[in-house]
Design a protein around this nucleic acid. Structure first.
Lengths: 336, 336
DNA sequence: ATTATAGTTGCACGCGCGTGCAAGACGCGG
DNA sequence: CCGCGTCTTGCACGCGCGTGCAACTATAAT
């Protein structure tokens, strides 16, 4: 094995420069999009780089330029399949634009600070929070000591100053759902939400109940599951409906998201012997893959994840510096 | 705001050194576990670091030491909820030991090379492949040009040389499943696997069919879904069972993983009017959360993900350099 | 041919920290 | 008091690349 072959990944710009007969900086320019470099040298550099198998070291590049090209994705909710959809979209679209994603788990017990600190130690250009249960108050203290350049709350509401929100427009969404239910003739909804213990605003709940009251003059009872997973939802719904006489029963259960809606349906069918939608209708939110399965055919609301991710790109590039709320789409299936 | 307050994340070891009245290298030693440093200086440094809000820059550290502390997790399968379980476990356990995880999407069309190249540009210490559908042949060429220090195939079989496999022991697993089915009196199984188009070895399928033939003397018919998702599974199972007379019907469908098993159940119940397990039993693999829901109660096989992840840690630390196969556990529920 | 202009190239310095070595400080027995 | 071993500390150099500026070359206009 001669010395030209054993490029064990340690081919630097200097090597390419030597091979192409130019300086190291010309090599860098050849890889930069609109740098001032002649076509001839660029071609020569590219050819040499290809021959040597050179690829810029993004770690060194990040250190020198103070732009790591890294985005931390922080979540505390791995129970919801919707997170998988978010992760897929985020990593794929960000990667296509040259961003790498650092996936971080933020445990419930300790606050977001630990995750944000770890992210800052990697010099991330931005941190994206896609958890559902982080506490706004705690987040504030984390922000106080923050070193992360940009902090984006993704697919969730937050009025936190110093934070950017990119989310589906819950107001439009919940109105669409309410309008649909009213049109279908439903009159006694119950809203099933996630945990009530955090300071996190339960935006969908308040929006729906306010709008329903505005249109019908009647208030909407609400339930809270202990967690954002189907098990907690099953338990709560079973407890709520068990022994309730059919005439006092709600005619539709509006759920804060799909995984909770799925749990509600499971409770109704498997534990209470109720039919969906004949006995009770159900709506969800997110449009996770399971919602489309023939076993559920859940009427739900699809968030515009791709559009949201593209907005995130603009935030990363500094083109957008304000909150973004995008409309989604009501997906009608068989549970209403 | 005085100059002590505006430490906008740019507190370096030099600042701490000045504040503590020592040299920068003593600061570094204070943060290193068993470095030769006196208790007194360490305490002084730690105090100064805390006061200034100092945290080592892992990017610079990685550049200097050639150990980035980064692990790339590469997958091409975001349709299977099991991936979410894997991601949760991997990120959480690796992070607890100081490793950060880079999540990368490896599209089906282009090979693994692009992802591995991107990973190497970030100087990852290892790349972990948790996809289900990557092509072994293509992987070989990617390995040829590789710069990634370690490549681990996680939760999947691969005989690729130069690669380390950490997986559940499929041989034990499929035998356990077969033994269980035989004991329950099932005699006409069908094996439902994922796509057959790649060169990837369908290890569970061959192991099950071989063992079943060995024990009963009868071969096992096999089916292949077009993809590892429930939609493809539903389509394949519906096509297979439609119009089949009850006496020629298999009495149990053994599935390569849970998401395919769920699809099979959906097809049987929703499209064919069959009952599970009365008309056909079903087994899965992975024990995804959905398998435990009352709507399915799927008998399945749980991979020892935590133990596998801990083995991965040992691989990262260089303690383990050979393939690892760990036994899982059969989880009996209501579909058999 | 001369000068202005744009286009192109090279370079010193720095990003923050690790490594290996050499120098200094300290304690102990002789 | 000296000499020795051990513990502790400081430092030169490098990791690979970006930035801003200065120098240089080619092209066009005078």
């Amino acid at each position: 094995m001669n010395s030209l072959d054993d490029n064990d990944g340690s081919v630097t710009a200097d090597d390419v420069a030597a091979a192409a007969g130019v300086s190291r900086w010309t090599v860098a320019r050849a890889f930069k999009k609109d740098a001032s470099i002649s076509r001839k040298s660029r071609e020569r550099v590219i050819a040499a780089a290809e021959a040597l198998g050179y690829a810029p070291d993004l770690l060194a590049s990040g250190l020198a330029s103070d732009r790591s090209g890294l985005v931390a994705i922080i979540t505390n909710d791995f129970n919801n399949p919707h997170k998988l959809v978010l992760l897929e979209r985020l990593t794929r679209i960000l990667w296509a634009k040259g961003w790498a994603t650092l996936l971080m788990h933020m445990s419930d017990s300790d606050d977001a600070s630990a995750a944000l600190l770890a992210a800052s130690q990697r010099r991330v250009d931005a941190a994206v929070l896609i958890g559902t249960r982080f506490n706004d108050a705690v987040l504030n203290t984390a922000l106080g000591a923050r070193r992360v350049k940009k902090l984006v709350i993704f697919a969730r509401y937050s009025q936190n100053p110093g934070t950017l929100t990119i989310a589906c427009d819950d107001v439009i969404a919940m109105r669409d759902i309410a309008d649909h239910l009213l049109e279908k003739g439903y009159r006694r909804p119950v809203f099933l939400a996630g945990p009530d213990t955090q300071s996190a605003k339960l935006h969908r709940k308040s929006t729906f109940t306010a709008y329903w009251q505005e249109r019908t003059g009647t208030p909407v009872p609400t339930l809270h599951a202990d967690a954002y997973d189907s098990g907690a939802s099953i338990a709560r719904v079973t407890r709520f409906l068990a022994g309730q006489s059919p005439d006092r029963r709600p005619d539709v259960m509006v759920c804060e998201n799909d995984i909770i809606a799925i749990g509600a349906i499971d409770a109704m069918r498997c534990h209470l012997g109720l039919r969906v939608p004949q006995d009770i209708a159900v709506t969800g939110f997110d449009d996770i893959p399971l919602a489309a399965s023939p076993a559920y055919l859940l009427t739900t609301y699809r968030q515009p994840i791709t559009a949201m991710t593209e907005k995130l790109l603009e935030v990363l590039e500094g083109k957008v510096t304000h909150d973004v709320h995008l409309p989604g789409r009501l997906v009608l299936r068989a549970t209403t």
